[in-house]
Structure formats: C-alpha cells, structure tokens
C-alpha cells in the first residue's frame, strides 16, 4: 500500500514535469522556468497567450483523457479478470467510434450528442464482445481475437458511413476517428476534468468492494458484498470513463491496455489499481502527444498513431518475451 502511494506520487511528479516540457515545446519554444513563471501569473502577455490559451488546454485534456483511459482499463481488467480485457481490446473503443460517427453524420450533433452516441455505441459493442467470448472461464486470448473480429465489422460500418456522408462531415469524422488532441480547447479540458472529478471518487469509494469481488462471486457474497450491484456500478463507471475519454479525444488505442499493466509492474501490488493506472495513463498519453508533435516535426501526427505503434510493440513484447500474459 505504501509502495503504491509512493509510485502514485512519483507518477504524478513525472506527469507535472512532462507537462512543463510540453507547455514549453512548440513553434515558439519557452524555457521550463519561463513556463513556470507564466503559470503563476508572472509572464509577459506573449507567453501568457501561448501557454495559457493555446497549450494548457491541450495538456490538461491529454492528462484528463489519459487518466480516464487508465482508470477505465484498470476496472475492466479487474472485472474481466483478464490482463487483456481493456476497453480498446474488447471493442468498446470501436463501438464508441461508430456511435459518435452516427451522431456526426446522421444526426449532426455537437460535443454532447457525440459523447452520448459514443457511450451507447461503446457499451453495446463491449457487451457483444464479452458475451461472444464468454464460455466458462479461460477466455484470455479468445477475448482479444473476438474483439478484433468485432472491430473489423465495426470498421466496415465506419467505412460505409464515411462513404455515405457528404464531404464536410466525412472529413470531420475521419479526423475524429484517428484519435487526436489537436485543437483541443478549454471546453474539452473542462468536460474531461469534470467527468474525472465525479467518477474517480466513485471508483475510490468502491475500492474495498472491488478488492473483495476479485476473490470470486461466492466469497464476495459470503463477505456481505452485493455482487451484482457493485459490478453494475463498476461497469457503468468504467464505461463512462472510457466514453468521456473517447468523446474528448477520439478512440485512442492502447492507453487503457498498457497503463494498468505498467502501473502494476511499478507498484507490484495485486488487486485493482485504478489510481496508479490513472496517473500512468495521464503520463503515457501526454508523453505520446509530445512525441506525436515532435517526432516528425513539422508534421503533426495524431496521438492515436503513436499510441497504436507503442501499444502494438508492447503487445508483441507481452506475447513473445513474457511467459504469461
């Protein structure tokens, strides 16, 4: 427990350091000292505009979305009792994309409509994958393959929707699908941060019962935990976290898969670890976004490309170099 706490603090400190670097990086570089001075309100108007108005919302959105994905992945992995059972693997993210696209193309809504479409689509897809893969335990790898198959189906739906749409909607949707933090403003940061402020306390309040749930339904029930209610609340929270992340930044791959596992490697704790995972997710996404902006500068890659490459490599490593995945 003490180690988890220390790891969490160290991760937060790393996030802050990366954030300062990210705030100073761009077409107009600012030194870390300059960034800090601006943040406490003692910069000149130029740096104030660049740091506070242009770069800070993007950095905050990255942190909040990464934290949401990390926490969501930790809950999903604990609920499915499967280290590969993260929202992107079990089809949530692809379903959320379809839901959001339907809203963008067929309904034509704003941020709120897109978000609710993403929640609904993601939840339906995740439920479908989980039910298809469920068969008396031992579902680890099967879950991944069925998730990929469902993703292939949903990608076909996406292509179909894009082909039907007019050019303006189609471009907007195509950009959204890649998963990007470009041009994120204070509205996005506020939505993501606000959702996190509501949902993380719920996760924390349920922490002890989640721990008991991992011992198995029978044991949990005999210890006086209302299994179904806790599970339902956890599912709803995890789905909401992933949906908020998707709504604000698009379907960003692999943060939800990798963050809980990497956090566990550091804390060496068993059981669910939503908070260290959230901190790890925030750091991962922010660092990936920095990489996406600078790796092939001046071209700005969508952050989803970077996380997909890193996450795929991580999955290969898990498969090939670890005895158990």
């Amino acid at each position: 427990m003490r180690r988890s706490f220390a790891v969490g603090l160290a991760l937060l400190a790393t996030c802050a350091a990366v954030a300062v670097v990210a705030l100073g990086t761009g077409d107009y570089p600012i030194s870390p000292a300059g960034v800090l001075r601006t943040l406490v309100g003692r910069g000149n108007p130029a740096t104030e505009y660049i740091v506070i108005d242009l770069r800070l919302p993007r950095v905050l959105t990255a942190l909040a979305v990464g934290a949401a994905f990390g926490a969501s992945g930790a809950i999903f992995q604990s609920l499915t009792r499967n280290p590969l059972g993260s929202p992107d693997v079990i089809g949530f993210t692809a379903g959320a994309s379809v839901g959001a696209l339907i809203m963008i193309i067929l309904v034509g809504g704003g941020l709120l409509e897109i978000a609710s479409g993403a929640v609904l689509g993601g939840a339906l897809a995740a439920a479908a994958v989980y039910l298809l893969a469920y068969r008396r335990g031992s579902q680890g790898y099967r879950l991944v393959i069925i998730g990929v198959a469902v993703q292939a189906l949903l990608t076909a739906v996406i292509t179909y929707l894009l082909a039907r749409a007019n050019i303006f909607d189609s471009q907007r949707a195509a950009l959204w699908i890649m998963g990007s933090l470009n041009a994120r403003g204070w509205a996005h940061a506020a939505v993501a941060g606000g959702a996190l402020a509501v949902l993380l306390p719920v996760v924390l309040a349920l922490h002890r019962r989640t721990l008991v749930l991992e011992l198995g339904d029978e044991t949990a029930r005999s210890l006086g935990v209302s299994v179904e209610r806790v599970r339902l609340t956890l599912i709803a929270t995890a789905v909401a976290l992933a949906a908020v992340g998707t709504a604000c930044a698009g379907p960003i791959a692999f943060v939800a898969l990798a963050a809980p596992q990497l956090a566990r490697r550091l804390t060496r704790a068993t059981g669910p670890n939503p908070l260290p995972s959230a901190a790890m997710g925030a750091g991962l996404l922010l660092a990936s976004d920095l990489l996406a902006q600078r790796a092939l500068a001046p071209t700005q890659l969508p952050v989803g490309v970077v996380t997909a490459a890193l996450g795929g490599a991580y999955l290969i490593w898990l498969l090939g170099w670890r005895r158990t995945a």
Binding site: I145, V305, A308, A309, G312, L319
Partner: peptide, 25 residues
C-alpha cells in the same frame, strides 16, 4: 493457433501505425 493470430494482430497494429505516419507526412 491462437498465439500466432495474436502475434499477427499485434504486429498489424504496429505496421498500420507506421503506415499511417508515412501517409500523414
């Protein structure tokens, strides 16, 4: 069988992302 498919899936993710990066630049 399943491990091989899984390796292919993971590898496809990486290749796809690299391809995307080339296309976008």
């Amino acid at each position: 069988p399943v491990r091989l498919v899984l390796a292919g899936i993971a590898f496809t993710y990486v290749l796809h992302a690299i391809g995307r990066a080339i296309l976008l630049t």
